Simulated scan of single mutants.
Amino acid sequence: MTTTLITGASSGLGAEMARQFAALGHHLALTARRTDRLEALREEILAAHPDVRIEVRALDVTDDEAVFAVFAEVAEAFGTLDRVIINAGLGKGAPLGTGRYAANRETAMTNFVAALAQTEAAMEIFRAQKQGHLVMISSISALRGMKKNLTTYAATKAGVAALAEGLQNERVPGVDVTILFPGYIRSEMNDKVEQAPMFMVDTETGVKAMVDAIEKRKAKASVPAWPWMPLGNVVKHAPMPVVRRLT
């Protein structure tokens, strides 16, 4: 069985990925700060899939030492770690220069610096094993600079994609790297948005597209493919005035 570690697994996309990977027979390591939610998720999944092994660990991904320790502990507990999904993230943000630096900094530290620590920890394990699958959750917003509240968030997700692409360029023997660019998928991060953006899909549908791309070990995937593959190309290549109207 594949052993998969998911960060930020207590809610939203991470929790739903756990459910869907368990249905595929994966053993799971679920990490997040809110261990009460992780334990509830563990019991829910085991009730449906009793043959799956699930390890739960408390983890604040902005604590570098904890990231390395927990990843190593999980690899030792299972004897191997086949896949790491770097999913934990924040959606906070404000227009630059409007007095909300603290929120932008928190997003940058969680979405990029913490992702770097997770990547380092995962790759140390994969290099030692000579095999592994690293999955980085970026965003459609990473394809271009975004305005206002999305500026910092989009920049961090572009950084995540660049980290992953650098590893793809390196071609570490035995290691596959997948970069996912999710479009609008309903999750706890956006459930307080009063008016859902156009093309928003429910969590289960969106995550199914993510899981399918991960299982196929795609190098890059916009998910769901429709409409985000063609729309992503528009966002990436259109003149900025067009992008401004779209976003």
Rank of each mutant, 00 (worst) to 15 (best):
A108I: 12
R105S: 07
T107A: 00
A164L: 06
G79Q: 02
T152F: 08
A162D: 14
L90C: 07
A158F: 00
L163Y: 05
I125V: 15
L143R: 02
L143N: 01
A121V: 08
A164H: 12
S138M: 07
L116I: 11
K147E: 12
A108D: 09
P173N: 02
A88M: 09
R144V: 11
L167R: 05
A128W: 05
K92G: 15
K148T: 14
Q129F: 03
H133E: 08
L150Y: 15
I137F: 03
T80N: 12
A164I: 08
G132C: 03
K148M: 12
T80G: 08
L96S: 02
I125Q: 08
V135H: 02
N169R: 15
R171P: 04
Q131G: 11
A142D: 03
G91P: 13
G89T: 06
R100T: 06
P95E: 02
P173S: 04
A103P: 04
L150A: 14
D82Q: 01
N149G: 09
A117Q: 11
Q118S: 15
A108R: 10
A103R: 10
V113Y: 08
S138C: 07
R105H: 12
N104T: 01
T110I: 05
G91Q: 08
G99T: 00
R100G: 11
A161C: 04
V175A: 01
S141E: 13
D176H: 15
N169A: 15
A142Y: 05
